[in-house]
Design a protein around this nucleic acid. Sequence first.
DNA 1: CTCTGTGCAAAAGATTTGCAAGGTG
DNA 2: CACCTTGCAAATCTTTTGCACAGAG
Lengths: 127, 127
Amino acid sequence: MKQKRNTLQRKTVFETVGELHGHPTANQVYLKAREKCPKISRGTVYRNLNVLSDDGRIKRIKVPGIVRYDSKLEPHYHFICTVCHNVSDVPIPYQFQLNDRLSKDTGFKVNLHRTVFEGICEKCRKE
Amino acid sequence: MKQKRNTLQRKTVFETVGELHGHPTANQVYLKAREKCPKISRGTVYRNLNVLSDDGRIKRIKVPGIVRYDSKLEPHYHFICTVCHNVSDVPIPYQFQLNDRLSKDTGFKVNLHRTVFEGICEKCRKE
DNA sequence: CTCTGTGCAAAAGATTTGCAAGGTG
DNA sequence: CACCTTGCAAATCTTTTGCACAGAG
């Protein structure tokens, strides 16, 4: 495995994902990171988001529309509001056994599954 | 609701999604549709995929990377191979009750959930 | 000193959109 | 004949990449 350096930019991107709560997009990380490191470029943010998620230091979550990042590493499910597009964590435990079950049923090597619920959040329902 | 016409292009896009099995991307639909309707444009294919899925005549499925379309309308889960990127249906029944459960637990209006398993398919494991 | 990482800008890929012309009901 | 739809091209948006230079170890 290639040696990884710990540059200011890398550190800033990593910290920024942790500070932005609602599962930020790459662009949101870029905008926020620029406050601390004004001349960081979009390319660098994208590159570091990739490096960090390849290394397992952050998670890449795929919800309809756009990729988002998450500093919470344990497997868990998400809910996305189709009105405000906010993403939140869901209080339903991760069904680890589904992966094994599907492996046995199909002969595939199943590593993980991602579940995203869709609907309207409480705040948007009231409006 | 706006009146919808049934043009040759619209019909072709709809039929093409049904004919292409493995959960085609917009571009795959475009390439195939052009065989029957040579001067159909990409824009028209995209517009019609949107119209058809808004009308519930096809489903839009979100797997990592790219949007795909599906002519099978009943809720079901998918598996994507991280090597060949093929998408297949999964023999695990849809957990309708999860939506209600999450609604009760959170106060959100939960309409649906999407689950995508990731791993390596049998064919790619052998290679 | 070596090699990874950065900034910038250009490129790539997917999807949407403005507009004038065409076709459906 | 109203107005939905199409083709085309340009525009958007997100993400990647080539290159020369900077900087970490």
